[in-house]
Design a protein around this nucleic acid. Structure first.
Length: 904
RNA sequence: GGGUGCGUAGCUCAGUUGGUUAGAGUGCCGCUUUGACAUGGCGGAGGUCACAGGUUCAAGUCCUGUCGCACCCACCA
């Protein structure tokens, strides 16, 4: 390293070069290697409409951390990237573009529109992958897939064909959420609910055989035109005699039956409910159970049909008309206000019309059971665990999957119909003739598959399952190791991958699922353009650097919880990068050129492992480092990546820099200590870099390249080294040194505190006196007083052995007592403040200290007076409290005595 | 309506299996340009751990209830 090093770290200088280096070395690429265990992640493919947002940044950073750790743990790590065609969402985006150009998709027609889609996908579809590359993501770019590319489409076709042949796929007239504006069925998940207050109408339906009425309540009177029954609860005493009776449906004058069904809530309304199977999901189910007629009275444009004079009216106009007509007939018993949820289209806000239509479904029950079993047996492990139970619960209540969508963008359903109404058949391309009647007039289903159908196959479609299910890549890389995802697509996607993986390959698609939360703003609100609270990851990269972005994201995560992000977080991470940079800079600037061979020699001879001849701060930092490693190991096993980052931050900043580095400065002054001090500095630096690398890859790679020349064993890239190495140094014989350094730290903090309390300017260096009671104490204080002197900015340190010299307490001073250990006893510290301090302030300070100490003593005594504590608490605990009690008591007496003296 | 999670310093959050006087970042106050770093250093103020009970020698941590917030599922006329 040059002498002229900038004082601040500049990621913009570093990141492009490092990225280039990785790409050129192809460190991202993995091939089949039977000597190594594979560790595979498939990316949750981002939608091609997407520009990178914070959610992507989080999701992919986590994956990158995991894949880099795997690589550094010497697995054959592979991360497969790709994008998703995104169905409705993408079609919408492009449709809006077209509208801006004054075109609609209907004007263009299907073929032209799709051409436009593909063109668009070609131009903008991979933007997000480029952005991920710059985020440092170590995806195998040579394996980039797209859900509608040849490889993945082959899988879609094969899966569809198999499911069809196995009779899992069926076509059914089912009730779906229909958006009359968008003209398509919507998945349940695509329906939003809005709370609104409407009128609840109580309508009297005349009985046919008897006199009187049965009254039903509804908020949608127009649907009564499609009623095919009235239902009551079988247990409802009021209506027991009505079951089986026939009523005359007003306005339509149709006869409909009164049936009994236990879903009817006797508490609601009148306890009797009108049944409109074609326009209400619950009623539809009832109709299935009771074999009711399903009468469609509202069409796809939300206009009334099959209802005589009402036909052609809009559903809301019709509502008014029905109300009027019922009023005229005197059939409205009463009207109440009623607040309820109304389903609306998540895209346009139009009120959803549930209606029946022909859709393709997959029978899910059997397939779900296999998944349920596998998850219960622990074949898929969820982090955090709660998500396993959510998934199991969902699988238990699974419904058939509606896989047809009335849009154009997607995999067109490979079903063909024949003019002669033969059985529909599956054919991948255009068939020449109907296989049943050989008619040449065949036409393909108009619909496309739900976008999640191809997503569900993703973990194996990317390895070419669709083309050859026995290919060697699939055999080697499948099942994958871990899937990283947000909890919002646990059912839509994750559960379905598990089901499809088990169904087609008889193996779960991944062994582990890492579930993370959603990135929100600082107040917990979702980031959205309309709220104006979006933080763009690209802006953050620009301002603070990629590593700062990554570090903030990773260290903010805690097991499955949402992240509340504020820009300050990135400032803090940027500062940490700078701290890291300057800490390295300090070490580099202290290594002279002529030191290099000696230093390298020192590091290679593993003198370290002999665990002799270190200073106390070195024993201490090596001990702290050992503890850090064990903690990290523990966290890694539970994938607590946030905790790992926070631990590293604390260790580096508050231990390595604040304390060890400061003492190292002192040791570097001593010629005989120079090399060993530099040695320990570099030893820990190297290991820190490796541990940090998965989270902040650019910075660590950059520094590694500079540190390399001192290291005995190196690789081209830090990625090729080991993430994790248990330290081989045995520190068990040096507990005493470690303990002493802790004590020295305390003493230094105390003196600093006293300095601040009396507002001593830095140029004022007071004298400090320690009183000790024996030679042991004297010896160690003498040995280490240099640390105290330098780090707390004091002039001289006198050590008075009370055995030999009589000692009278200095008048103007501030004191403290340090309990070294039971064996060694305690030492007293006096900071001489004569001529410097305000005497009155000192009295107040002492008074406060006495109060605090008394309070603490009381606490300890109350414990020791508790006989049950003495017998039931662990012995160690009791012993600790006892020791503490004795020492505190001594301390209190001393302070009190001193306080008396100072009062004259 | 059913379920889950959360409520700890002004703000955002850590806090393992219950065990000394509850921590960090940020903000605030004071001191500080000393040869790694002012994107820094040192010190400080600030918390009845939502509330009420209970279990325990001991509860931020376990149990019950209440209130508040968020989300998931269902969407029942």
């Amino acid at each position: 390293m040059q002498k002229e090093l900038p004082k601040a770290y500049d990621p913009k200088q570093v990141e492009p070069k490092i990225l280039q280096f990785w790409l050129e070395k192809k460190l991202y690429h993995a091939e089949i290697d039977k000597t190594k265990k594979p560790f595979v992640i498939v990316i949750p493919p981002p939608n091609i409409t997407g520009a990178l947002h914070m959610g992507h940044a989080l999701n992919n950073t986590i994956q990158d951390v995991i894949i880099r750790i795997a690589k550094m743990n010497h697995f054959n790590a592979l991360w497969v990237p790709g994008t998703d065609h995104g169905g409705i969402a993408t079609q919408n985006v492009v449709e809006r573009l077209l509208i801006k150009e004054g075109k609609t998709k209907h004007q263009l027609g299907r073929e032209k529109f799709l051409e436009f889609m593909w063109q668009w996908r070609k131009e903008t579809g991979d933007t997000i992958l480029h952005q991920l590359k710059h985020l440092g993501c170590l995806c195998d770019w040579e394996r980039t897939r797209f859900t509608m590319d040849e490889i993945c489409s082959a899988a879609v076709y094969k899966a569809f064909k198999k499911l069809f042949d196995q009779k899992y796929i069926y076509r059914g007239e089912r009730i779906v959420n229909w958006c009359p504006r968008c003209q398509t069925a919507l998945a349940d998940i695509e329906v939003e609910y809005k709370t609104q207050t409407d009128k609840l109408w109580y309508i009297k339906y005349p009985l046919k055989e008897k006199k009187g009425f049965i009254t039903v309540a509804t908020v949608r009177p127009e649907t009564m035109l499609g009623d095919t029954a009235v239902a009551v609860n079988p247990e409802d005493e009021r209506y027991k005699n009505f079951i089986g009776e026939v009523v005359i449906l007003p306005l339509m004058n149709r006869e409909i039956k009164i049936i009994a069904d236990k879903v009817v809530d006797p508490e609601f309304g009148t306890g009797a409910v009108k049944v409109t199977p074609a326009h209400d999901p619950a009623d539809f189910e009832m109709a299935q159970r009771h074999n009711l007629e399903i009468l469609k009275v509202i069409n796809e444009d939300a206009k009334m049909i099959n209802v005589g004079v009402y036909s052609g009216l809009d559903r809301f106009e019709c509502r008014k008309k029905v109300e009027e007509d019922l009023n005229k007939l005197g059939l409205i018993e009463k009207v109440e206000d009623y607040t309820h949820n109304v389903g609306i289209c998540y895209r346009c806000g139009t009120v959803i019309e549930p209606l029946t239509s022909k859709q393709w479904f997959i029978k899910m029950k059997e397939i779900a059971q296999k998944a349920h079993k596998a998850i219960s047996e622990g074949k898929v492990i969820y982090y955090p665990e709660v998500y396993r139970d959510y998934t199991l619960n969902w699988l238990e209540n699974i419904k058939d999957w509606c896989i047809s969508r009335q849009i154009w963008w997607g995999h067109r359903i490979p079903i063909w119909y024949c003019k002669n109404e033969c059985e529909p058949f599956v054919y991948e391309t255009t068939p020449e003739k109907c296989p049943h009647c050989s008619s040449k007039e065949v036409f393909q289903d108009q619909d496309v598959l739900d976008t999640w159908f191809s997503s569900a196959l993703w973990p194996f479609s990317v390895f070419g399952w669709g083309i050859d299910e026995n290919n060697s890549e699939l055999k080697y890389f499948y099942p994958t190791q871990i899937l990283v995802t947000g909890y919002e697509i646990l059912y839509l996607w994750v559960a379905r991958m598990i089901m499809m993986g088990l169904h087609f390959l008889d193996e779960v698609p991944f062994k582990e699922v890492y579930v993370h939360g959603i990135v929100r703003d600082i107040h917990g609100k979702k980031m959205s353009k309309s709220l104006g609270n979006v933080i763009d990851p690209l802006d953050i990269v620009e301002k603070y650097g990629t590593d700062a972005l990554r570090f903030s994201l990773v260290s903010s995560t805690t097991a499955g919880r949402d992240i509340h992000l504020a820009e300050e977080s990135f400032v803090s991470s940027r500062n940490f990068m700078n701290k890291l940079y300057n800490m390295t800079r300090f070490i580099m600037l202290n290594i002279k050129e002529e030191d290099e061979p000696e230093l390298k020699n020192w590091l290679s001879q593993e003198i370290l492992h002999s665990s002799e001849n270190f200073t106390i701060s070195e024993y201490w930092i090596l001990d702290q480092f050992q503890k850090l490693i064990l903690t990290i190991k523990d966290y890694y096993e539970k994938y607590l990546l946030g905790n790992i980052s926070r631990e590293l931050y604390d260790f580096i900043w508050f231990k390595y820099c604040d304390w060890y580095l400061e003492t190292a400065k002192i040791n570097l002054q001593k010629e005989e200590k120079r090399i060993s001090t530099l040695g320990v500095l570099v030893y820990i630096l190297e290991k820190i870099l490796k541990l940090l690398h998965p989270v902040i890859p650019f910075f660590t790679e950059h520094i590694y390249q500079s540190v390399k020349k001192f290291l005995p064993q190196t690789k081209d890239s830090i990625l090729e080294t080991s993430w994790f190495e248990i330290q081989k140094i045995d520190l068990s014989k040096h507990k005493k040194e470690i303990f002493i350094f802790e004590l020295i730290k305390e003493i230094i903090s105390e003196i600093r505190s006293i300095r601040n309390e009396f507002k001593l300017q830095p140029n004022i260096k007071p004298k400090v006196i320690f009183t000790v009671e024996d030679n042991t104490q004297e010896a160690f204080l003498t040995e280490y007083s240099i640390y105290i002197q330098k780090l707390s900015f004091v002039d001289t340190i006198d050590i008075v052995n009370k055995k030999h010299i009589s000692f009278s307490k200095p008048r103007y001073s501030s004191s403290a007592v340090f309990n070294i250990s039971k064996e060694i006893g305690s030492v007293e510290l006096y900071v001489l403040l004569e001529g410097i301090i305000d005497f009155e302030k000192e009295k107040l300070r002492l008074k406060k200290e006495i109060e605090e100490t008394e309070k603490f003593l009381q606490l300890l005594e109350s414990r020791l007076n508790n006989s049950e504590f003495l017998t039931k608490a662990p012995q160690e605990e009791v012993k600790k409290i006892k020791e503490k009690h004795i020492l505190t008591k001594e301390k209190l007496e001393k302070i009190k005595k001193y306080y008396q003296e100072i009062l004259f």
